[in-house]
Design a protein around this nucleic acid. Structure first.
Lengths: 359, 359
DNA sequence: CTGAAAGCGCTTACAG
DNA sequence: CTGAAAGCGCTTACAG
């Protein structure tokens, strides 16, 4: 039984499994077996190896292991930003998703690679092909139609991925998303219950932004039950940033020709909290009181929503469950287990901006 | 000149450099040279290889490359949370740091591994030893004294790391931090200029939390210039979360025995915005008006600070520059270039909570 | 239960 | 300028 010699000069070079083998008086193969938890190892041998591992402070080299196993134990989170977004801050909602995904990965024993991407970037080529990650989590707003094609490419290449977003009937790959339609319904019911008849919508309500579209439709459905409906004339496009909301609200005000006079709408449903916050600023500047003159509802329940003046009524998405489910679904895909798209419940959070709460 | 055969069955298996070599009619070594940008390659050969790479959609296998190069091209961001923190949300300030670090890594061509750690975890063993990352970025609040030892261990092991936090004279390793002392001075000057004499401090001002301590000292120094000083009786410990701020403010109120009567302080400097927001709630419940009865200043300038009622005067840290500098410094360390600790300027952002702005 | 050996896919010193 | 070959540090089928 010969064992390989350890390196002659032990000059603070990282320990390898060969060092451990020598230290414990076993073969390198046995060290590897112990470290991978093989049942084929004698208890006493295992003990000796484990001791050497502790003593030499050894950790398995991740690259050697991944190369051999053809598996990296790493997931990649790609966060898309709209090309319009300058170097400004990321939507807090996504930051909160990032937090929950990070935790979920830790629980699943996976490492997480995080990257921000422009929608236009050549991202589909990179992470999976280079085997940096076993699968991708796709997150972010952006024109769905223009990135759908990239999803097709991913699928063709056999890349495992899960997307956060609208759950659509015929989409490429799997999505986890909030039940946006129901979220919209909750808003519509709430506003109709408060007697609103003319509900404006701030957000791109087309199939370019299917999440916003679902929110719009849900609200419309609820209003119809109450004998009303959304009016397309009261819909103004907006991406999800605050400035977009500000601009859209001004456009809405201009359109309804309400220079000082009563506006042509009694409520505004903003497709995101950031949009709502921008709109709030525009209304304020215009001398329009929220909720006195206009009731306002957002979507996402970002941390700031509690602090706007008035505090923002909004729809909360369960980011904790979302992160968990995204990781779980992606792991199933990677392990060739059955997996499916799923929607998470939405919850209305009533605060003062809709004029319903006490005070 | 013989070239290795490509795999017989081409069943959607990822292309390797051998496939490319065969396709381009060169050796695998030459493919590698082209991909690593070696100048030793004939232009026409290079062209052929590049074409094959495009055609077969080839990407270098990261693990094989890293194993060979003994370099991963990856940085790890370890975000510490206090053990007290339940599954609640991360301080938005750190989320914003995370955003800027992510961008900086992208610009530096490095991948970023993100992980949340409990201060108590055995994190020092993992990332660098396993070669998952070439270096670590350490971020987060937590008892400095209790984690200083781990920094020493990292240093001993030869792990490259940079820490975000207080820049201290005799600390292990390098730190990038905001000039907390000067940030505190700015607050002290501002408050003194408004005629405040009794400034309370909400935050742990000991060497367990050197950043908070520096803020405290800076404020004290500024008050002394104006003929005053901080009063230790008006200092209440608080970690950085909102609930801690709420509790600390109530403790302060109880201590100064001000049940309805005028409190024993005319201003409060909260060590973080989150603490300030919690304090604001406590003061409100107590019937204390900000800034009428108490002037309030925070630290960090998180997104919500603009929206509290009244909007929060605070000290902004340049997170963009911070991320850039953290990555730059860590890269220098990894490349064995000279590198040093650095402080970034702090900037006072005056809003209504200090009673100085118009309105 | 254990060791010897092959091989994961690269990179680069060496020889031409 | 290019190819053949060694080797990075693992994991596991194979043989005992």
């Amino acid at each position: 039984m010969t064992h390989p010699d350890p390196p002659a000069s032990r000059k603070r070079t990282k320990a390898t499994s060969i060092d451990i083998a020598h230290h414990a008086g076993v073969s390198q193969a046995t060290v590897s077996r112990v470290l991978r938890g093989s049942p084929l190892v004698n208890a006493e041998t295992r003990r000796r190896v484990e001791e050497a591992v502790r003593e030499l402070n050894y950790t398995v080299d991740r690259h050697a292991s991944s190369l051999r196993l053809q598996r990296s134990g790493t997931l990649a989170l790609l966060l898309f930003e709209d090309p319009t977004a300058d170097d400004s801050h990321i939507n807090p909602f996504f930051l909160s998703m990032l937090g929950s995904i990070t935790r979920a990965c830790a629980r699943a024993g996976q490492d997480l690679l995080v990257s921000f991407q422009q929608l236009s970037d050549d991202w589909h080529a990179d992470y999976a092909d280079s085997r940096k990650a076993d699968g991708l989590i796709l997150l972010g707003y952006g024109d769905y139609l223009s990135y759908r094609g990239k999803l097709d490419t991913l699928l063709e290449q056999g890349t495992r991925f899960v997307r956060w977003g609208a759950v659509l009937p015929d989409q490429p790959g799997l999505s986890i998303g909030c039940d946006n339609f129901h979220g919209g319904e909750l808003v519509g019911q709430h506003l109709a219950g408060l007697g609103c008849r003319r509900v404006a919508f701030l957000g791109d309500a087309s199939s370019h932004y299917p999440e916003f579209l679902d929110r719009y439709r849900g609200c419309d459905a609820a209003l119809r039950v109450a004998g009303g409906a959304m009016d397309p004339a009261l819909q103004v496009d907006a991406q999800s940033a605050e400035d977009d909301g500000y601009a859209a609200a001004r456009e809405l005000l201009a359109r309804s020709g309400a220079a000082g006079a009563a506006p042509g709408f009694d409520a505004v449903f903003a497709a995101s909290d950031l949009i709502a916050i921008g709109a709030l600023r525009a209304f304020e500047e215009h001398g329009l009181h929220v909720p006195g003159d206009v009731r306002l509802v957002g979507f996402d329940d970002i941390p700031t929503a509690r602090f706007t003046q008035p505090a923002l009524t909004t729809v909360a998405q369960d980011t904790s469950a979302a992160g968990e489910l995204l990781v779980e679904t992606l792991m199933a895909l990677i392990d060739n287990q059955p997996a499916q798209s799923r929607m998470l419940p939405a919850q209305l959070v009533v605060r003062r901006s809709s004029g319903a709460a006490p005070g």
